[in-house]
């Protein structure tokens, strides 16, 4: 722990980079996953295509995706985009399933009632389906966020920033404290982000706990 306080500025700087590299992919990935998840919740055929595809995306090791991305999209190997793109891919893969499951779990009688009262599709989706799907969606978002925060470190193996830099530097200089500092930072960040999402979820869905 002493390393963190002695090198506060450095620690704070890598925390910022780490946060940026993990949160941006969650946001982009989530937004991209909503239409796909909606599609998969409505069509058996879409699910048959999207779910196996998402599974295959997961099997690509992150380190491999990080080193291949620059070649595929033509940027230098030391560009943050090389972490953001792979993590976005993983987020999409995970959130398609979450969003689809969440929307499928909305009770049919509620949807029927909304239709019977004359909701048009878009309005119904935004004011009925989506809010009711939030608890399951947010649960998925929590998993995606925590795993992204833990995965960003892999980028350091090819020289990118974040807590992972502390790992590689610590390894090369045989400096355990430095590795430990990065590990603690990662876990604390993950726990905080997870708690924040939990809180947001509770605030957004007061009805979910009303029956208890």
């Amino acid at each position: 722990m002493t390393w963190i306080f002695e090198n506060w500025e450095r620690f704070w700087e890598v925390t910022g980079v780490h946060l940026r590299l993990s949160v941006v992919p969650v946001l982009i990935g989530f937004l991209l996953a909503i239409p796909f998840g909606w599609w998969a919740s409505r069509s058996q055929r879409a699910r048959a295509v999207l779910f196996p595809f998402a599974n295959v995306l997961f099997t690509i090791p992150s380190i491999a995706l990080i080193v291949i991305t620059p070649v595929l999209i033509g940027v230098k190997i030391l560009d943050e985009i090389n972490v953001i793109v792979p993590l976005t891919v993983y987020t999409v893969a995970l959130m398609i399933r979450s969003v689809a499951d969440a929307l499928s779990a909305v009770p049919g009688n509620v949807i029927a009632a909304a239709n019977a009262m004359g909701f048009r599709p878009l309005r119904r989706f935004l004011t009925v389906d989506f809010p009711l799907a939030l608890p399951v969606t947010i649960a998925g978002l929590r998993v995606a966020t925590v795993s992204n925060i833990s995965m960003v470190s892999v980028g350091a193996l090819v020289g990118l920033g974040g807590y992972g830099q502390l790992f590689t530097e610590g390894y090369q200089t045989d400096h355990t404290e430095k590795v430990l500092a990065g590990l603690i930072g990662t876990v604390v960040l993950a726990v905080l982000a997870d708690g924040l999402l939990l809180l947001i979820g509770r605030l957004l869905t007061p009805w979910a706990r009303a029956g208890r």
Binding site: S147, S150, S153, A156, L157, G164, F167, G170, Y171, V187
Partner: peptide, 19 residues
Amino acid sequence: SNALRALPTTAVLILVVLW
């Protein structure tokens, strides 16, 4: 489960190697 999920595998690997 959640705490272990947050653990970066790279860091664990390096720490155990150093140890």
